[in-house]
Design a protein around this nucleic acid. Structure first.
Lengths: 248, 248
DNA sequence: TTCGCCCCTTGATCTGCATCAAGGACCGGA
DNA sequence: TCCGGTCCTTGATGCAGATCAAGGGGCGAA
């Protein structure tokens, strides 16, 4: 979450997120060249599991296109999503051999991968990579803490409103369109995935979306296409103090 | 959370956590000397607020002794703890000017502080610091994700059992005593603070602790002193898959 | 065109935890 | 010794969201 660096920031960069958005370390050329040499691409189909928790994972990667999730599962099947990976987000942990979470592609996904060992060696040689990764990880930690407030203290209605706001913000540079003051977003998740994100059941998700729709906070075309006539109203429903830097 | 490096790992280190446990970067001498020059100590009384969310925070720091918490508060007063800082844990974010959370001392706390600017300059010069901070932040992120599973999907009873297990583990090198196979821990939090940690009310916390006590999962002396006769049993109550590396 | 599979919606009922309320244990100060 | 405050426990009641259940819409395959 929250690992994006605006596309506009480094216009000279190319198509791989690690390079142009994730750990490009301000586009310093030699680092780019080195990273360039060890990267490779992998694609996954919608629904495909990228790694299972506990499996060996010998690469780190960055999402180029598509959406993936991190989830934890208890023995009895209860599931909680703990990460939502959008383009430019980073997965994997330098210095760890096995995956800690199930990583699943919810849409078709293209990943830009780096074998862990050469990546770690590069990190040792190019300090900016560790600094950039630190910055990204701190952003993720902030997002996780916001998420904890949501899980622990928000009502079902507030959770739904928050999720829509979060997706609207995160997709801002990707899929968001402003149409005369109103925002339009496509929800990239099924009701069940939203439930796993929010710590609810899919029935409750469905009911609360219907309620927000009936009351005019959002409007729906089909099941996924959401129009937000008044973003501030949505934030109010979400229980958020403020916009938190939507357009900062 | 989870930022500890065993005391035994670097016996030659001194008394400041940044130095001997947090970002010592394997005790490389020159880095130590440089860090040594910019550090200073501050102490806080139990109950005192260290920073309010939104305040300017011009230092980063590491807890030397005592316990502090990070909490988020909604406008209507609902509170969620999002971080629990034990000795050796790190607070603050290089590259950010204002605090994102309320930081509160729950016991008397001694912090080892570094003014942000010199610390950031040092980071630029000594790459190992960023690497070490990255490692610590990734540990915190993992802990946050475990916490999200707890908040989103666990029952009140499982939450309490989980919290006791977490504290027992984290205090392992500090306060934990093994007495013939059983463990003894002092809960460093009031019932209300536990409730804020777990996303419950203090009444529910109290009831569930009583229940676990009645069923022999734990025993209590006074309100804070807990004996765990069978740690595996506790983990079972917590819904955890396994010990997760308690003594690893 | 029809079938079958998802995904989603809505209704009825149940229940775990919140809320409201009262009182007990402990402690430090007058 | 009593008093007030803080922290904790326990009981009674209410309600948000889970659970159980039924059915509708869209879409790809036959």
């Amino acid at each position: 979450m929250g690992l994006q660096v605006g596309l506009g920031a480094h216009p000279e960069c190319g198509d791989c997120p690690i390079r142009h958005r994730a750990v490009c370390a301000r586009c310093e050329t030699d680092e780019l060249a080195a990273l360039e040499q060890i990267k490779y691409y992998r694609s996954y189909q919608a629904g495909q599991t990228i790694t299972w928790s506990g499996d060996r994972m010998d690469f780190v990667a960055s999402v180029v296109t598509g959406i993936a999730t991190l989830t934890q599962t208890m023995e009895d099947g209860r599931r909680q999503m703990v990460g939502l990976l959008l383009p430019s987000d980073f997965v994997g942990r330098p210095g760890r051999v096995t995956a800690a979470y199930d990583v699943t592609a919810t849409t078709d996904v293209l990943m830009c991968c780096f074998r862990k060992k050469p990546f770690e060696e590069m990190m040792g040689k190019t300090p900016h990579i560790a600094e950039r990764l630190l910055e990204m990880t701190l952003d993720e930690l902030d997002a996780a803490r916001e998420w904890m407030l949501l899980l622990g203290r928000k009502t079902a209605r507030e959770k739904i409103a928050s999720l829509i706001a979060i997706i609207a913000r995160r997709h801002a540079s990707l899929h968001l369109r402003r149409t005369g003051g109103s925002m339009v977003v496509d929800l990239p998740l099924t009701r069940e995935e939203m439930a796993d994100y929010l710590g609810l059941t899919l029935e409750t998700v469905s009911r609360q979306i219907s309620a927000l729709k009936k009351e005019g906070v959002i409007s729906l075309e089909g099941k996924r296409h959401v129009t937000i006539p008044d973003f501030d109203r949505l934030l109010e429903e979400a229980g958020d103090d403020s916009d938190g830097g939507m357009l900062a």
